[in-house]
Structures are given as C-alpha cells and as structure tokens.
Amino acid sequence: MDIFLQQLINGLTIGSIYALVALGYTMVYGVLKLINFAHGDLVAFSAYIGLVVMMQLSGAISSSAVIILLTFIVTMIIIAAAGVTLERIAYRPLRSAPRLSAVVSALGASLVIENGIMLIWGPRPKIFPADIVPSINWNIGGVYIGLLQLLVLVISFTLMFILYFFVNRTKLGTAMRASAIDQDAARLMGINVNKIIMTTFIIGSALGAVGGLFIGMYYRGIYFNMGWIYGLNAFVAAIIGGIGNIPGAMLGGLLLGVFNALISGYLSSSWALALTYVLLIVIMIFRPTGILGERVAEKV
C-alpha cells in the first residue's frame, strides 16, 4: 500500500508536468487541427532559457523564492514570444495549404529548435542547481512528499484551474472555443481568428515553459533533444484524453504520469515507455477519440 501511495504521489507530480505540456498540443490542435511537433522542443528550449535566467538571477538576488518566481515569469514570456514567432513563420503561411504541408513544416521547426539548442548550449547535458528549492521532505505515514513536488502539484493545478476558468467562463475563452469549432462562423461573429490563434500559442507555449522548468528542477539534467521524449509523452497524454479537449489533456497527463509511476514502482522503469504505448493502443481501440474526446459526427 505504501508503494502504491508513494508512486501515486510521484505519478501525479510527473503527470501534472505532462498535463501542462499536453495542453499546448491539444489547444493548438483545437484551433488549427495541427499537431505542433515543435511544442516539445519549445519545452526543452524553456528549460535552457530558465537555467540561464536562474543562474543570472542567483548572482544578483539572494532569496530563492524571488529567483524562482522571476525565472518563471521571464521564461514564460520568452517562450510565449517564441511560440508566436513559430506560428508566424512556420504555420501561418501554410494556413490554406494541404494539411500535410503544415505537418512537415512542424517537423522541420522541431528540428530547427532542437539543433539550435545544441548549437547554442552544446550537445552535453546541463544540470540545474540542486538547492534552488530547499530539499524539505515530509513523511506522512510512510509516504514521502518533497517541497518541490508540492510546488509542482500546486502550481500545475492552479494553472490548469485558471485555464479551465478562462476557456469556459470568459468572453475571449468562449471565442477560442468557437474558433475551434468553426472558424468562418467565428469570423461572422466579429472574432479576429488570427488573434485567437496567437493567444492560443501564447497560452500553450507559456504552459509548456512551466512544464520545461519543472522538468529541469525535478529531474535536474536537461539535454538538447529532451523535447522529443517529453513531447512524445505529453502528446500521447493529449491523445489519451482526447486531442482538442482541454480537460482531456489534463486528465490524460495525470493518468499517464500515474500509470508510468506505477509501472516503475511495481515492475521496472524500463517497462514504463513500452507499456505507455500498450495503454495508448488499448485506449485507441476502445475509444478512438480518447477518453473525453467527442465522437466526430457531423450533422448535415
């Protein structure tokens, strides 16, 4: 039972990071029907940017809470700007081109960012400082939870709640959902769809940046091609939850995290990735649109 609870905590921590990254995939898919393959690499980029910002700040500021807060804000802004640039350069010119062209462009953008990171920071892994979040651990009935884990959980859930509120309860959020359903009809409502797409990239990239920073702080080692594996996991999470569906991405991320952690706890971590895809296949067989995805049935 202890192993179960411990792995549940660990899984929720990793899962909430997956969820943050998965949201970027699912939101962009929602409005553009495009898998933004470069999203994972933006996440990797955010870890590197975050590390640079953090090292600069720690020379100037002594309070680690302030350092962390500023690192998050600055990194989110930079990555959001990168996401908007990506959309402008790689996707907007192909808006009316066949779907496959945009997918190829996405793969190309992914390679550009990945190799760009390698050119700037080199091929060897970089390490996040160990003591940036004090290593405080609580023992609750035999189950350990660290301060960093608690931070990851609280911040991720807060951000997801804010996003959910924004999308479902605000005017701009409703316009975003409308644009995802029918872009021309949205234009007829007076919605500037280009602005909505830009907003989607800003939010998705900023959430991805938080995910990238958490990956750096939690696992500490970051490497230039890490966007591939974390991106793939988050992408699988988005599909499991139902691509295009925001609560689906959150659920898919958490589910995948817990699933991975339980496999690692009871079996072996080397099985985690293989069985992730078994899970994906099983879910796709029984629910091809994902757990919360809508059945695509068009009324003529």
């Binding site: 005017k171 409703t174 316009a175 959902r177 409308a178 359903i181 029918d182 009809a185 949205a186 409502m189 007076g190 919605i191 809508e294 009324k299």
Partner: peptide, 16 residues
C-alpha cells in the same frame, strides 16, 4: 457552435 450552449452562442453574437 454545437458544443456551446444556446446562451453562449447568442452572447458570442455580440462579440464586437
């Protein structure tokens, strides 16, 4: 907008 409520659809009409 099929997955939005009737009222949400109406309110979107006044988006401008």
């Amino acid at each position: 907008f099929g997955t939005l409520t009737v009222e949400e659809n109406l309110k979107l009409g006044a988006y401008t």
